[in-house]
């Protein structure tokens, strides 16, 4: 546990979000000990931990021995009983390092904070959470675990992963497809600017969906990318490819720029939604808790 990991997300924000739960629409594989209904019954083998009883839990899963000792209701959880297995895929490419004047954080930091909050919420309700970072190549991979202290492992990994290189979201999703044997929730946090393989990201996401994984893509954008507020003649420098520059007069091409980015984002959204892949666009000027509340109240 490092101080940097502690500072990734404000504890007060976590406290405000404590009442939220992560629900997935379709039935998840796993024992019905949590909030997610499992198609498999009675296949538990290895005790994992006790969890405090919460309204909605089956009474038959209450550990009466533990109740006799502690006078509290606890539910026994086993390794395979985890309701939900979630893979958080966080984009750490160079473009995620951008932070405009109005953004609360850089896009990469904002994505890391979102991932941390989602992990904390999922772990808190007994779900397993894994992490995969990716830039030009695949980065750190943390296998899913359901232990509460697993949060710190994830947070440390998020903090320690540097940003840089080009975006390879396709590689990250293919990696998840390899490691996720059971039906899982795959959360992709990226700006979606993968110009090397346009359209492939949505295709792989749809493939995952066809294999009964639930996939949600959060496209994280800075306000500057959304409304392009520049005015004076400017040399724009790429954040992922060195020495890639373009001189532009923003006043003259703003309209065309807005058309371009709108077309790109709308196309991505359309491709994902057509494959029943969740999609949400997030602007970093929005407070994090607002983003999380909106996301959980909506699709995820």
């Amino acid at each position: 546990m490092t101080s940097a990991a502690e500072k990734l997300v404000d504890p007060k924000l976590l406290a405000r979000l404590a009442g939220l739960g992560v629900k997935v629409r379709q039935a998840m594989e796993g024992v019905l000990t949590g909030q997610h209904k499992s198609p498999h019954h009675g296949s538990s083998v290895e005790f994992a931990q006790h969890r405090e009883y919460a309204p909605g839990d089956e009474i038959k899963h209450i550990d009466w021995k533990a109740y006799a000792k502690s006078d509290r209701f606890h539910i026994k959880q086993f390794e395979d009983e985890t309701n939900l297995r979630t893979y958080l895929c966080v984009d750490t490419s160079g473009s995620m390092g951008y932070r405009g004047a109005r953004g609360t954080e850089s896009k990469g930091r904002y994505a890391a904070q979102m991932a941390a909050v989602l992990a904390w919420l999922l772990l808190r309700q007994g779900d397993a959470v894994g992490l995969l970072t990716f830039g030009e190549r695949l980065g750190a991979y943390v296998p899913p675990r359901a232990r509460p202290d697993h949060y710190w492992h994830l947070a440390r990994t998020l903090v320690d992963t540097p940003v840089g290189g080009q975006t390879d979201a396709v590689g990250a999703l293919e990696r998840v497809a390899e490691v996720a044997a059971r039906r899982s929730l795959v959360v992709l946090l990226t700006d979606g600017f993968d110009f090397n393989s346009p359209g492939r990201m949505a295709a792989v996401a749809r493939q995952l969906r066809r294999r009964n994984h639930r996939v949600v893509v959060f496209q994280i954008l800075d306000p500057d990318e959304v409304d392009f507020p520049f005015k004076d003649l400017t040399v724009f420098e790429d954040m992922e490819v060195a020495d890639d520059r373009a001189l532009a007069d923003p006043r003259g091409m703003r309209e065309a720029y807005l058309d371009e980015i709108r077309a790109y984002c709308d196309g991505l959204k359309r491709d994902l939604l057509e494959g029943d892949v969740g999609y949400r666009r997030v602007v970093t000027s929005t407070p994090l808790d607002r983003t999380i509340i909106d996301a959980l109240g909506g699709r995820a």
Partner: peptide
Amino acid sequence: AQVVRFPALEF
């Protein structure tokens, strides 16, 4: 002309 590092250079 000022130099600005910008992610959406492609657009």
